[in-house]
Design a protein around this nucleic acid. Structure first.
Lengths: 237, 237
DNA sequence: CAGTGGTCTAGACCACAAT
DNA sequence: TTGTGGTCTAGACCACTGT
Protein backbone atom coordinates (compact mmCIF):
# COMPACT_ATOMS: atom_id res chain seq x y z
CA UNK A 1 0.00 0.00 0.00
CA UNK A 2 1.65 3.23 -1.06
CA UNK A 3 -0.86 5.49 0.69
CA UNK A 4 0.51 6.66 3.99
CA UNK A 5 -2.76 6.69 5.91
CA UNK A 6 -3.77 3.24 4.67
CA UNK A 7 -0.34 1.92 5.50
CA UNK A 8 -0.54 3.25 9.06
CA UNK A 9 -4.12 2.00 9.35
CA UNK A 10 -3.08 -1.51 8.32
CA UNK A 11 -0.10 -1.58 10.67
CA UNK A 12 -2.16 -0.59 13.71
CA UNK A 13 -5.03 -2.85 12.64
CA UNK A 14 -2.65 -5.81 12.57
CA UNK A 15 -1.42 -4.95 16.04
CA UNK A 16 -4.98 -4.92 17.35
CA UNK A 17 -6.01 -8.14 15.64
CA UNK A 18 -2.88 -9.96 16.73
CA UNK A 19 -3.32 -8.69 20.27
CA UNK A 20 -0.13 -6.65 20.49
CA UNK A 21 -2.50 -3.84 21.37
CA UNK A 22 -4.88 -5.40 23.89
CA UNK A 23 -8.62 -4.62 24.19
CA UNK A 24 -9.54 -1.79 26.59
CA UNK A 25 -6.00 -0.45 26.76
CA UNK A 26 -5.06 3.10 25.85
CA UNK A 27 -2.87 3.69 22.84
CA UNK A 28 -0.41 6.53 22.39
CA UNK A 29 -1.76 10.00 21.75
CA UNK A 30 -1.89 11.48 18.25
CA UNK A 31 1.22 13.61 18.56
CA UNK A 32 3.37 10.70 19.71
CA UNK A 33 2.00 8.49 16.94
CA UNK A 34 2.74 11.22 14.39
CA UNK A 35 6.37 11.15 15.47
CA UNK A 36 6.52 7.34 15.44
CA UNK A 37 5.01 7.10 11.97
CA UNK A 38 6.56 10.37 10.68
CA UNK A 39 3.35 11.96 9.48
CA UNK A 40 1.15 14.97 10.12
CA UNK A 41 -1.75 14.95 12.56
CA UNK A 42 -4.32 15.03 9.77
CA UNK A 43 -2.86 11.89 8.22
CA UNK A 44 -2.70 10.16 11.59
CA UNK A 45 -6.28 11.11 12.30
CA UNK A 46 -7.40 9.73 8.96
CA UNK A 47 -5.76 6.39 9.76
CA UNK A 48 -7.23 6.27 13.26
CA UNK A 49 -10.69 7.24 12.01
CA UNK A 50 -10.69 4.20 9.76
CA UNK A 51 -10.03 2.04 12.82
CA UNK A 52 -12.89 3.77 14.60
CA UNK A 53 -15.21 2.95 11.69
CA UNK A 54 -14.10 -0.67 11.88
CA UNK A 55 -15.04 -0.81 15.56
CA UNK A 56 -11.46 -1.56 16.53
CA UNK A 57 -10.72 1.75 18.22
CA UNK A 58 -12.63 4.15 20.42
CA UNK A 59 -11.61 7.78 20.80
CA UNK A 60 -12.72 10.42 23.27
CA UNK A 61 -11.70 14.04 23.27
CA UNK A 62 -9.81 15.02 26.39
CA UNK A 63 -9.25 11.39 27.29
CA UNK A 64 -7.50 9.33 24.65
CA UNK A 65 -7.85 6.42 22.23
CA UNK A 66 -8.63 2.88 23.34
CA UNK A 67 -8.69 -0.53 21.72
CA UNK A 68 -12.25 -1.89 21.67
CA UNK A 69 -13.44 -5.34 22.69
CA UNK A 70 -14.16 -7.89 20.01
CA UNK A 71 -17.41 -8.40 18.12
CA UNK A 72 -20.43 -10.69 18.42
CA UNK A 73 -19.67 -14.22 17.28
CA UNK A 74 -22.21 -16.90 16.45
CA UNK A 75 -22.34 -20.31 14.84
CA UNK A 76 -23.07 -19.00 11.37
CA UNK A 77 -20.99 -17.68 8.53
CA UNK A 78 -20.78 -14.00 9.41
CA UNK A 79 -20.67 -11.69 6.42
CA UNK A 80 -19.71 -8.10 7.02
CA UNK A 81 -22.35 -5.75 5.64
CA UNK A 82 -19.63 -3.47 4.38
CA UNK A 83 -17.95 -6.19 2.29
CA UNK A 84 -18.26 -5.66 -1.42
CA UNK A 85 -16.91 -9.00 -2.53
CA UNK A 86 -19.12 -11.87 -3.60
CA UNK A 87 -19.64 -15.13 -1.78
CA UNK A 88 -16.45 -16.66 -3.15
CA UNK A 89 -14.24 -14.22 -1.32
CA UNK A 90 -16.49 -13.41 1.66
CA UNK A 91 -17.10 -16.95 2.82
CA UNK A 92 -13.37 -17.71 3.02
CA UNK A 93 -14.24 -21.32 2.35
CA UNK A 94 -14.56 -23.74 -0.53
CA UNK A 95 -17.32 -22.29 -2.76
CA UNK A 96 -18.69 -23.99 -5.88
CA UNK A 97 -21.67 -23.25 -8.11
CA UNK A 98 -24.27 -24.92 -10.29
CA UNK A 99 -25.92 -22.91 -13.06
CA UNK A 100 -29.70 -23.25 -12.95
CA UNK A 101 -30.48 -20.79 -15.75
CA UNK A 102 -28.52 -18.43 -17.97
CA UNK A 103 -30.40 -16.43 -20.58
CA UNK A 104 -31.23 -13.03 -22.03
CA UNK A 105 -34.37 -11.29 -20.81
CA UNK A 106 -35.84 -7.82 -21.25
CA UNK A 107 -35.58 -5.44 -18.33
CA UNK A 108 -38.69 -4.86 -16.26
CA UNK A 109 -39.42 -1.27 -15.34
CA UNK A 110 -38.19 -1.79 -11.80
CA UNK A 111 -34.92 -3.50 -12.65
CA UNK A 112 -34.30 -1.03 -15.47
CA UNK A 113 -34.49 1.81 -12.97
CA UNK A 114 -32.00 0.14 -10.63
CA UNK A 115 -29.53 -0.55 -13.44
CA UNK A 116 -30.07 2.83 -15.06
CA UNK A 117 -31.08 1.32 -18.42
CA UNK A 118 -34.31 1.59 -20.42
CA UNK A 119 -37.27 -0.68 -19.87
CA UNK A 120 -37.05 -3.73 -22.17
CA UNK A 121 -33.33 -3.34 -22.72
CA UNK A 122 -31.72 -6.80 -22.89
CA UNK A 123 -30.17 -8.16 -19.70
CA UNK A 124 -28.40 -11.31 -18.68
CA UNK A 125 -30.41 -13.34 -16.23
CA UNK A 126 -28.40 -15.85 -14.27
CA UNK A 127 -29.61 -18.11 -11.51
CA UNK A 128 -27.06 -20.13 -9.65
CA UNK A 129 -27.12 -22.54 -6.76
CA UNK A 130 -24.05 -22.05 -4.62
CA UNK A 131 -22.34 -24.57 -2.40
CA UNK A 132 -20.00 -24.26 0.54
CA UNK A 133 -18.04 -27.44 1.26
CA UNK A 134 -20.39 -29.21 -1.13
CA UNK A 135 -23.56 -28.18 0.73
CA UNK A 136 -26.13 -25.99 -1.08
CA UNK A 137 -26.48 -22.75 0.86
CA UNK A 138 -27.54 -19.89 -1.42
CA UNK A 139 -29.67 -19.38 -4.53
CA UNK A 140 -28.67 -16.26 -6.45
CA UNK A 141 -30.69 -14.51 -9.14
CA UNK A 142 -28.47 -12.02 -10.97
CA UNK A 143 -29.19 -9.43 -13.66
CA UNK A 144 -26.34 -7.82 -15.58
CA UNK A 145 -25.95 -5.55 -18.58
CA UNK A 146 -24.43 -7.50 -21.53
CA UNK A 147 -22.69 -4.49 -23.07
CA UNK A 148 -21.10 -3.61 -19.73
CA UNK A 149 -20.08 -7.10 -18.68
CA UNK A 150 -19.24 -8.94 -21.91
CA UNK A 151 -17.93 -12.46 -22.28
CA UNK A 152 -19.87 -14.16 -19.50
CA UNK A 153 -19.63 -17.88 -20.11
CA UNK A 154 -20.02 -21.15 -18.27
CA UNK A 155 -16.47 -21.11 -16.92
CA UNK A 156 -16.99 -17.69 -15.35
CA UNK A 157 -20.38 -18.56 -13.91
CA UNK A 158 -19.05 -21.72 -12.33
CA UNK A 159 -16.47 -19.65 -10.48
CA UNK A 160 -16.58 -16.06 -9.27
CA UNK A 161 -18.23 -13.41 -11.45
CA UNK A 162 -16.65 -10.73 -9.29
CA UNK A 163 -13.16 -12.11 -9.89
CA UNK A 164 -13.90 -12.11 -13.63
CA UNK A 165 -15.02 -8.48 -13.54
CA UNK A 166 -12.07 -7.28 -11.51
CA UNK A 167 -9.28 -9.50 -12.85
CA UNK A 168 -10.23 -10.25 -16.45
CA UNK A 169 -12.23 -7.18 -17.41
CA UNK A 170 -10.09 -4.94 -15.21
CA UNK A 171 -12.97 -3.04 -13.65
CA UNK A 172 -13.17 -2.04 -10.03
CA UNK A 173 -16.24 -2.67 -7.91
CA UNK A 174 -16.59 0.28 -5.61
CA UNK A 175 -19.95 0.32 -3.85
CA UNK A 176 -23.30 -1.37 -3.33
CA UNK A 177 -26.77 -0.81 -1.94
CA UNK A 178 -28.29 -3.74 -0.06
CA UNK A 179 -31.53 -4.65 1.66
CA UNK A 180 -31.72 -7.64 3.97
CA UNK A 181 -34.91 -9.40 5.09
CA UNK A 182 -36.34 -12.71 6.23
CA UNK A 183 -38.80 -14.62 4.05
CA UNK A 184 -40.68 -17.89 4.03
CA UNK A 185 -38.96 -20.42 1.83
CA UNK A 186 -40.78 -21.15 -1.44
CA UNK A 187 -40.85 -24.48 -3.24
CA UNK A 188 -37.71 -23.64 -5.22
CA UNK A 189 -35.79 -22.73 -2.06
CA UNK A 190 -37.01 -25.93 -0.42
CA UNK A 191 -35.97 -28.05 -3.38
CA UNK A 192 -32.48 -26.63 -3.92
CA UNK A 193 -31.51 -25.63 -0.39
CA UNK A 194 -33.05 -28.79 1.12
CA UNK A 195 -35.31 -26.88 3.47
CA UNK A 196 -38.59 -28.03 4.90
CA UNK A 197 -41.60 -25.70 4.59
CA UNK A 198 -41.23 -24.26 8.09
CA UNK A 199 -37.65 -23.20 7.40
CA UNK A 200 -37.09 -19.62 6.19
CA UNK A 201 -34.45 -17.90 4.07
CA UNK A 202 -32.44 -14.73 4.55
CA UNK A 203 -32.93 -12.65 1.41
CA UNK A 204 -30.47 -9.98 0.28
CA UNK A 205 -31.33 -7.61 -2.55
CA UNK A 206 -28.42 -5.70 -4.01
CA UNK A 207 -27.39 -3.17 -6.62
CA UNK A 208 -23.62 -3.06 -7.15
CA UNK A 209 -21.65 -0.25 -8.77
CA UNK A 210 -18.35 0.07 -10.61
CA UNK A 211 -15.86 2.78 -9.67
CA UNK A 212 -17.17 4.99 -12.45
CA UNK A 213 -20.49 5.10 -10.64
CA UNK A 214 -22.31 2.84 -13.13
CA UNK A 215 -24.56 0.11 -11.66
CA UNK A 216 -23.56 -3.21 -13.22
CA UNK A 217 -25.54 -5.79 -11.23
CA UNK A 218 -28.92 -6.26 -9.62
CA UNK A 219 -29.28 -9.43 -7.60
CA UNK A 220 -31.45 -11.31 -5.16
CA UNK A 221 -29.74 -13.91 -2.98
CA UNK A 222 -31.67 -16.32 -0.82
CA UNK A 223 -29.55 -17.85 1.94
CA UNK A 224 -30.15 -20.84 4.19
CA UNK A 225 -31.28 -19.25 7.45
CA UNK A 226 -29.10 -21.43 9.64
CA UNK A 227 -25.85 -20.79 7.76
CA UNK A 228 -25.58 -17.02 7.44
CA UNK A 229 -25.76 -13.77 9.32
CA UNK A 230 -24.78 -10.21 8.46
CA UNK A 231 -22.74 -8.11 10.85
CA UNK A 232 -22.03 -4.43 11.05
CA UNK A 233 -20.50 -1.86 13.33
CA UNK A 234 -21.98 1.65 13.19
CA UNK A 235 -20.60 4.86 14.68
CA UNK A 236 -22.35 8.18 14.97
CA UNK A 237 -20.46 10.76 12.94
CA UNK B 1 -25.11 22.73 13.65
CA UNK B 2 -22.08 24.84 14.48
CA UNK B 3 -19.60 22.54 12.73
CA UNK B 4 -18.75 23.87 9.31
CA UNK B 5 -18.38 20.53 7.55
CA UNK B 6 -21.63 19.16 8.99
CA UNK B 7 -23.40 22.35 8.08
CA UNK B 8 -22.23 22.15 4.47
CA UNK B 9 -23.01 18.41 4.42
CA UNK B 10 -26.58 19.05 5.57
CA UNK B 11 -27.13 21.88 3.11
CA UNK B 12 -26.03 19.81 0.12
CA UNK B 13 -27.85 16.73 1.43
CA UNK B 14 -31.08 18.72 1.55
CA UNK B 15 -30.56 19.88 -2.01
CA UNK B 16 -30.13 16.28 -3.16
CA UNK B 17 -33.11 14.95 -1.23
CA UNK B 18 -35.36 17.79 -2.36
CA UNK B 19 -34.22 17.29 -5.95
CA UNK B 20 -32.62 20.72 -6.42
CA UNK B 21 -29.57 18.67 -7.33
CA UNK B 22 -30.95 15.98 -9.65
CA UNK B 23 -29.69 12.37 -9.82
CA UNK B 24 -26.90 11.67 -12.32
CA UNK B 25 -26.03 15.34 -12.71
CA UNK B 26 -22.59 16.78 -12.04
CA UNK B 27 -22.16 19.17 -9.16
CA UNK B 28 -19.64 22.00 -8.98
CA UNK B 29 -15.99 21.15 -8.46
CA UNK B 30 -14.35 21.35 -5.04
CA UNK B 31 -12.65 24.69 -5.59
CA UNK B 32 -15.87 26.40 -6.69
CA UNK B 33 -17.75 24.92 -3.75
CA UNK B 34 -15.01 26.12 -1.38
CA UNK B 35 -15.62 29.65 -2.63
CA UNK B 36 -19.41 29.33 -2.41
CA UNK B 37 -19.28 27.98 1.14
CA UNK B 38 -16.19 29.98 2.18
CA UNK B 39 -14.15 27.08 3.45
CA UNK B 40 -10.91 25.23 2.75
CA UNK B 41 -10.66 22.25 0.44
CA UNK B 42 -10.12 19.83 3.35
CA UNK B 43 -13.35 20.97 4.97
CA UNK B 44 -15.23 20.73 1.69
CA UNK B 45 -13.86 17.28 1.09
CA UNK B 46 -14.93 16.16 4.54
CA UNK B 47 -18.49 17.32 3.86
CA UNK B 48 -18.58 15.67 0.44
CA UNK B 49 -17.10 12.42 1.79
CA UNK B 50 -20.02 12.15 4.20
CA UNK B 51 -22.38 12.38 1.24
CA UNK B 52 -20.38 9.66 -0.51
CA UNK B 53 -20.75 7.43 2.54
CA UNK B 54 -24.50 8.06 2.48
CA UNK B 55 -24.69 6.91 -1.13
CA UNK B 56 -25.93 10.33 -2.21
CA UNK B 57 -22.83 11.39 -4.11
CA UNK B 58 -20.33 9.67 -6.35
CA UNK B 59 -16.87 11.13 -6.98
CA UNK B 60 -14.22 10.23 -9.51
CA UNK B 61 -10.76 11.70 -9.75
CA UNK B 62 -10.20 13.57 -12.98
CA UNK B 63 -13.92 13.59 -13.72
CA UNK B 64 -16.05 15.21 -11.05
CA UNK B 65 -18.78 14.60 -8.48
CA UNK B 66 -22.22 13.32 -9.37
CA UNK B 67 -25.52 12.92 -7.57
CA UNK B 68 -26.42 9.22 -7.29
CA UNK B 69 -29.74 7.58 -8.09
CA UNK B 70 -32.03 6.72 -5.24
CA UNK B 71 -32.04 3.52 -3.20
CA UNK B 72 -33.97 0.25 -3.24
CA UNK B 73 -37.49 0.69 -1.94
CA UNK B 74 -39.79 -2.13 -0.87
CA UNK B 75 -43.09 -2.59 0.92
CA UNK B 76 -41.53 -2.99 4.34
CA UNK B 77 -40.32 -0.60 7.02
CA UNK B 78 -36.76 -0.01 5.94
CA UNK B 79 -34.34 0.54 8.79
CA UNK B 80 -30.91 1.88 7.97
CA UNK B 81 -28.20 -0.40 9.32
CA UNK B 82 -26.22 2.64 10.37
CA UNK B 83 -29.01 4.11 12.49
CA UNK B 84 -28.26 4.07 16.19
CA UNK B 85 -31.68 5.08 17.40
CA UNK B 86 -34.22 2.60 18.71
CA UNK B 87 -37.47 1.61 17.10
CA UNK B 88 -39.32 4.67 18.39
CA UNK B 89 -37.26 7.05 16.35
CA UNK B 90 -36.32 4.77 13.43
CA UNK B 91 -39.81 3.66 12.47
CA UNK B 92 -41.02 7.26 12.16
CA UNK B 93 -44.46 5.99 13.05
CA UNK B 94 -46.67 5.54 16.06
CA UNK B 95 -44.81 3.11 18.34
CA UNK B 96 -46.17 1.71 21.61
CA UNK B 97 -44.98 -1.03 23.95
CA UNK B 98 -46.22 -3.69 26.32
CA UNK B 99 -43.91 -4.94 29.07
CA UNK B 100 -43.80 -8.75 29.16
CA UNK B 101 -41.13 -9.06 31.85
CA UNK B 102 -38.93 -6.72 33.85
CA UNK B 103 -36.59 -8.21 36.45
CA UNK B 104 -33.06 -8.53 37.74
CA UNK B 105 -31.01 -11.50 36.59
CA UNK B 106 -27.36 -12.53 36.92
CA UNK B 107 -25.16 -12.15 33.88
CA UNK B 108 -24.30 -15.29 31.93
CA UNK B 109 -20.70 -15.61 30.87
CA UNK B 110 -21.53 -14.66 27.31
CA UNK B 111 -23.57 -11.58 28.08
CA UNK B 112 -21.07 -10.51 30.74
CA UNK B 113 -18.35 -10.50 28.10
CA UNK B 114 -20.44 -8.36 25.73
CA UNK B 115 -21.27 -5.84 28.46
CA UNK B 116 -17.79 -5.89 29.93
CA UNK B 117 -19.02 -6.88 33.40
CA UNK B 118 -18.27 -9.92 35.54
CA UNK B 119 -20.18 -13.17 35.25
CA UNK B 120 -23.12 -13.18 37.69
CA UNK B 121 -23.17 -9.41 38.04
CA UNK B 122 -26.79 -8.23 38.31
CA UNK B 123 -28.46 -7.04 35.11
CA UNK B 124 -31.84 -5.69 34.19
CA UNK B 125 -33.72 -8.07 31.96
CA UNK B 126 -36.56 -6.49 30.03
CA UNK B 127 -38.77 -8.12 27.45
CA UNK B 128 -41.17 -5.92 25.56
CA UNK B 129 -43.67 -6.43 22.81
CA UNK B 130 -43.65 -3.44 20.50
CA UNK B 131 -46.46 -2.18 18.34
CA UNK B 132 -46.59 0.02 15.27
CA UNK B 133 -49.98 1.55 14.63
CA UNK B 134 -51.34 -0.85 17.23
CA UNK B 135 -50.05 -3.97 15.48
CA UNK B 136 -47.48 -6.18 17.28
CA UNK B 137 -44.31 -6.24 15.18
CA UNK B 138 -41.24 -6.82 17.37
CA UNK B 139 -40.33 -8.70 20.53
CA UNK B 140 -37.28 -7.24 22.26
CA UNK B 141 -35.17 -8.89 24.94
CA UNK B 142 -32.90 -6.29 26.52
CA UNK B 143 -30.12 -6.55 29.12
CA UNK B 144 -28.79 -3.42 30.81
CA UNK B 145 -26.43 -2.58 33.66
CA UNK B 146 -28.42 -1.16 36.62
CA UNK B 147 -25.59 1.02 37.94
CA UNK B 148 -25.06 2.50 34.50
CA UNK B 149 -28.69 3.03 33.57
CA UNK B 150 -30.46 3.83 36.85
CA UNK B 151 -34.10 4.74 37.32
CA UNK B 152 -35.67 2.45 34.75
CA UNK B 153 -39.37 2.29 35.53
CA UNK B 154 -42.64 1.41 33.89
CA UNK B 155 -43.08 4.85 32.37
CA UNK B 156 -39.72 4.68 30.64
CA UNK B 157 -40.23 1.12 29.42
CA UNK B 158 -43.59 1.96 27.93
CA UNK B 159 -41.94 4.67 25.87
CA UNK B 160 -38.43 4.93 24.48
CA UNK B 161 -35.50 3.72 26.61
CA UNK B 162 -33.14 5.50 24.23
CA UNK B 163 -34.89 8.82 24.74
CA UNK B 164 -34.64 8.30 28.50
CA UNK B 165 -30.90 7.61 28.28
CA UNK B 166 -30.17 10.57 26.06
CA UNK B 167 -32.65 13.13 27.36
CA UNK B 168 -33.12 12.31 31.04
CA UNK B 169 -29.78 10.73 31.94
CA UNK B 170 -27.93 13.00 29.52
CA UNK B 171 -25.76 10.29 27.99
CA UNK B 172 -24.91 10.01 24.33
CA UNK B 173 -25.27 6.77 22.42
CA UNK B 174 -22.42 6.65 19.98
CA UNK B 175 -22.03 3.22 18.38
CA UNK B 176 -23.32 -0.32 18.10
CA UNK B 177 -22.41 -3.78 16.86
CA UNK B 178 -25.22 -5.72 15.20
CA UNK B 179 -25.79 -9.15 13.69
CA UNK B 180 -28.85 -9.82 11.55
CA UNK B 181 -30.27 -13.26 10.68
CA UNK B 182 -33.43 -15.12 9.78
CA UNK B 183 -34.91 -17.66 12.17
CA UNK B 184 -37.93 -19.92 12.45
CA UNK B 185 -40.54 -18.40 14.71
CA UNK B 186 -40.89 -20.09 18.08
CA UNK B 187 -44.10 -20.45 20.06
CA UNK B 188 -43.56 -17.14 21.84
CA UNK B 189 -43.04 -15.29 18.56
CA UNK B 190 -46.14 -16.97 17.14
CA UNK B 191 -48.20 -16.02 20.13
CA UNK B 192 -47.21 -12.38 20.43
CA UNK B 193 -46.50 -11.49 16.82
CA UNK B 194 -49.51 -13.46 15.57
CA UNK B 195 -47.46 -15.60 13.23
CA UNK B 196 -48.29 -19.08 12.03
CA UNK B 197 -45.60 -21.78 12.37
CA UNK B 198 -44.37 -21.44 8.78
CA UNK B 199 -43.72 -17.73 9.22
CA UNK B 200 -40.18 -16.67 10.21
CA UNK B 201 -38.70 -13.75 12.11
CA UNK B 202 -35.82 -11.40 11.38
CA UNK B 203 -33.57 -11.47 14.42
CA UNK B 204 -31.16 -8.67 15.30
CA UNK B 205 -28.56 -9.08 18.04
CA UNK B 206 -26.96 -5.87 19.26
CA UNK B 207 -24.45 -4.41 21.67
CA UNK B 208 -24.78 -0.63 22.02
CA UNK B 209 -22.15 1.76 23.40
CA UNK B 210 -22.16 5.16 25.06
CA UNK B 211 -19.83 7.90 23.87
CA UNK B 212 -17.36 7.03 26.60
CA UNK B 213 -16.91 3.64 24.95
CA UNK B 214 -18.82 1.71 27.61
CA UNK B 215 -21.31 -0.93 26.41
CA UNK B 216 -24.66 -0.26 28.08
CA UNK B 217 -27.05 -2.64 26.33
CA UNK B 218 -27.18 -6.12 24.91
CA UNK B 219 -30.37 -6.98 23.06
CA UNK B 220 -32.08 -9.50 20.84
CA UNK B 221 -34.98 -8.23 18.72
CA UNK B 222 -37.24 -10.54 16.78
CA UNK B 223 -39.13 -8.76 14.00
CA UNK B 224 -42.14 -9.82 11.95
CA UNK B 225 -40.56 -10.94 8.67
CA UNK B 226 -43.11 -9.16 6.50
CA UNK B 227 -42.77 -5.76 8.18
CA UNK B 228 -39.05 -5.02 8.29
CA UNK B 229 -35.90 -4.91 6.26
CA UNK B 230 -32.45 -3.47 6.88
CA UNK B 231 -30.74 -1.34 4.29
CA UNK B 232 -27.20 -0.20 3.86
CA UNK B 233 -24.94 1.51 1.38
CA UNK B 234 -21.27 0.46 1.40
CA UNK B 235 -18.34 2.14 -0.31
CA UNK B 236 -14.85 0.78 -0.69
CA UNK B 237 -12.38 3.02 1.11
C1' DC C 1 -4.06 23.47 34.87
C1' DA C 2 -2.04 20.12 31.30
C1' DG C 3 -3.22 16.78 28.03
C1' DT C 4 -6.24 14.94 24.86
C1' DG C 5 -8.80 14.71 20.40
C1' DG C 6 -11.72 17.75 16.86
C1' DT C 7 -11.84 21.32 13.44
C1' DC C 8 -10.08 24.32 10.08
C1' DT C 9 -6.81 26.59 7.12
C1' DA C 10 -3.85 27.65 2.87
C1' DG C 11 -1.19 25.62 0.13
C1' DA C 12 1.74 21.91 -2.18
C1' DC C 13 2.03 18.06 -4.96
C1' DC C 14 0.18 14.09 -7.27
C1' DA C 15 -2.92 10.73 -10.08
C1' DC C 16 -6.22 10.41 -13.29
C1' DA C 17 -9.49 11.51 -17.26
C1' DA C 18 -10.97 14.10 -21.04
C1' DT C 19 -9.75 17.13 -24.81
C1' DT D 1 -2.83 20.57 -21.52
C1' DT D 2 -6.42 21.46 -18.44
C1' DG D 3 -9.38 20.31 -14.91
C1' DT D 4 -10.68 17.15 -11.64
C1' DG D 5 -10.41 14.82 -7.06
C1' DG D 6 -6.84 12.45 -3.55
C1' DT D 7 -3.13 13.00 -0.31
C1' DC D 8 -0.23 15.28 2.81
C1' DT D 9 1.72 18.98 5.51
C1' DA D 10 2.61 22.31 9.56
C1' DG D 11 0.40 24.81 12.25
C1' DA D 12 -3.49 27.35 14.59
C1' DC D 13 -7.21 27.31 17.54
C1' DC D 14 -10.85 25.13 20.10
C1' DA D 15 -13.57 21.75 23.23
C1' DC D 16 -13.48 18.50 26.47
C1' DT D 17 -11.60 15.68 30.54
C1' DG D 18 -9.33 14.79 34.65
C1' DT D 19 -6.36 16.55 38.30
Amino acid sequence: MELKYKDIYNQIKDQIIQGTLAPNTKIDDEISLCKQYRCSRMTMKKALDLLVQDGLLFRKRGVGSFVMGQPLQKQRISLNERELSGLTRSAKQDVSSKILEFKLIFASKEIASFLNVKENDPLYYISRLRFIKGEPVVIEYTYMIPTLIPGLCQDVLLGSIYNYIENTLGYKISSSKKSTRADKSNSIDQKYLQLDPTEPVLEVEQVAYLDNGIPFEYSISRHRYDQFEFSIYSVRI
